[in-house]
């Protein structure tokens, strides 16, 4: 008997009679309101340590980033063509070469108002490490792409096929030392969300 057979047999012998899977309808009785959802998203994501900017164009984003960072001689990376004046594209085969990335700018699919998270999967970028390796991370979010809750978020991606995807909420952080919050544990020290 293989371990698989052994485990499955033990589970089958031990599991109780089938219990019903509950309906989730209750959690979809919400009122969708784009303006309120966006306002809540901004409030929440700022509370968890990110910065947000309402912008009308990619030029504005570039100007803001140049104001916030001294990017001279620093490595900036983005898969978006709109940032070609300040950023290179990553096309390499060895992601270890991203170790010196100062700033990475990524698009996102949508954001979640209740917790400040942005969803991004590999339909929008092809190197998973880019979310984690740079000193600073910036997201571009379309202002109409905010859902109120995680239930609505999974409604968006319920049938989607991806290799990897993540909800990212704020900069990397830790409070392991005496519950003192420190931003920039292993991943980005800051997160900017540009709402366009």
């Amino acid at each position: 008997m293989t371990s698989k057979e052994q485990i499955l047999a033990a589970v089958k012998a031990s599991q109780p009679d089938l219990k019903e899977l509950p309906s989730l309808d209750f959690f979809y009785q919400d009122n969708l309101n784009q303006d309120e959802d966006l306002a809540q998203f901004i409030e929440t994501v700022e509370f968890i340590g990110a910065k947000t900017y309402r912008v009308n164009s990619y030029e504005e984003i570039i100007a803001q980033l140049q104001q916030d960072f001294d990017l001279k001689g620093k490595r900036v990376i983005s898969p978006l063509n709109e940032f070609s004046t300040i950023a290179e594209k990553y096309t390499g085969a060895d992601n270890h070469t991203l170790a010196d990335a100062e700033l990475i700018i990524l698009p996102t699919h949508f954001a979640v108002a209740e917790n400040g998270a942005c969803w991004i999967d590999d339909h929008l970028f092809d190197e998973r490490l880019m979310l984690f390796i740079p000193q600073h991370l910036a997201f571009v979010l379309k202002k109409e792409e905010v859902v109120p809750t995680m239930h609505r978020a999974y409604e968006r991606i319920a049938g989607k096929s991806y290799g990897y995807g993540a909800f990212v909420a704020g900069p990397s952080k830790t409070a392991d030392i005496e519950q003192s919050l420190v931003l920039g544990a292993h991943g980005p020290r800051s997160l900017r969300v540009f709402i366009i």
Binding site: I48, V112, E114, N115, G163, G165, S172, G187
Partner: peptide, 13 residues
């Protein structure tokens, strides 16, 4: 409200 990262691993890179 949520951890910073909720990573969904479906396929190997």
């Amino acid at each position: 409200p949520i951890t910073t990262y909720s990573s969904h691993f479906a396929k190997p890179a």
